Amino acid sequence: MPSACRGYDEWMIRVLLPRQQPGWKLVVPAVLLLCAFMVPGIMILAGQGEPAFNGVDTTWQAFTFTLHSPFWDGVNAVLNWAGYAGILAFHVVLALALLVWQRPMGAVFAATSGITALALTQLAKAVVGRDRPQGAQVLTDTGSYPSGHVSATTAFLMVLAILIGRWWMALLAAVGVLAMMVSRTYLSAHWLSDVLGGACLAAGVVLIMWWRFRDICVKENELADGRTIWAAKASRRLQAGEPAE
């Protein structure tokens, strides 16, 4: 195959080809993240809603009030939808896409990560029972710690970043999580510690899930020749000397 075609083909087929990491590089950060989620929750329970970091929460909340404007109100209304109902829909689309691309265990990994993060978030809300900030601009359920929007967003974007395995996806995931964290405090739906707790919980869950699913996901990716269906078709056309669609 001509070198130009090989370069194009290599660029096309590196889709959903995750890079392997030693097990401890997944487990240790996961445990640390889950501890970072649990410690504030325990402090909130012990302090009856007034933990040592309450001053940081209220200071940040006061700062977000200075950012309010009609434009940012509109942006955060979209993020409010995207961070919950939207993310659930995105999880379903991702799982279905992985099934179409002949990666059923990848679909199981994506779905299990999202469901587990959501279930643990709701359990923690019920156990901790923290009051939300006053003056929320959106409808909220009971329990402020941790943030469900941030937890769901973190789980989805981390799964996507792991499966795609590209630096730009990791960057987009980080930006997306930070945007959702700021949005929830901007809308007075959560304290700063709530959004940090949600991100830590979901990130820890996804890393644990990937540690368990990684080998079988990588294996099925290799059996699929490291390609998505459309990339494989493009490669065959290039090898035959035909223009790719």
Score class of each variant (00 low, 15 high):
residue 97 A to M: 13
residue 16 L to V: 06
residue 231 A to V: 08
residue 30 A to H: 06
residue 55 G to E: 13
residue 126 A to F: 10
residue 24 W to H: 04
residue 119 A to I: 13
residue 144 S to Y: 01
residue 173 A to D: 03
residue 158 M to K: 03
residue 148 G to S: 08
residue 121 T to V: 08
residue 119 A to N: 11
residue 150 V to A: 14
residue 102 Q to M: 05
residue 106 G to Q: 02
residue 180 M to K: 06
residue 35 C to P: 01
residue 14 R to M: 11
residue 33 L to T: 03
residue 177 V to K: 10
residue 132 R to V: 05
residue 213 F to I: 01
residue 202 A to L: 12
residue 156 F to Y: 02
residue 1 M to R: 11
residue 237 R to M: 13
residue 96 L to D: 09
residue 226 G to K: 00
residue 187 L to G: 04
residue 77 A to K: 15
residue 195 V to N: 14
residue 229 I to C: 03
residue 81 W to C: 09
residue 39 V to D: 15
residue 241 G to M: 11
residue 189 A to F: 13
residue 183 S to D: 11
residue 232 A to I: 07
residue 82 A to R: 14
residue 218 V to C: 00
residue 194 D to T: 08
residue 53 F to K: 08
residue 85 A to K: 15
residue 192 L to P: 06
residue 41 G to L: 12
residue 217 C to A: 02
residue 13 I to V: 13
residue 11 W to G: 15
residue 72 W to C: 07
residue 89 A to D: 10
residue 182 V to D: 14
residue 102 Q to R: 05
residue 207 L to M: 03
residue 82 A to F: 15
residue 1 M to L: 10
residue 205 V to W: 04
residue 22 P to K: 00
residue 202 A to R: 10
residue 213 F to P: 00
residue 188 S to G: 11
residue 60 W to G: 15
residue 229 I to R: 07
residue 147 S to W: 01
residue 170 A to C: 13
residue 173 A to C: 02
residue 108 V to R: 10
residue 224 A to D: 01
residue 182 V to H: 15
residue 17 L to H: 00
residue 205 V to G: 11
residue 187 L to A: 09
residue 215 D to H: 00
residue 19 R to A: 01
residue 138 V to H: 03
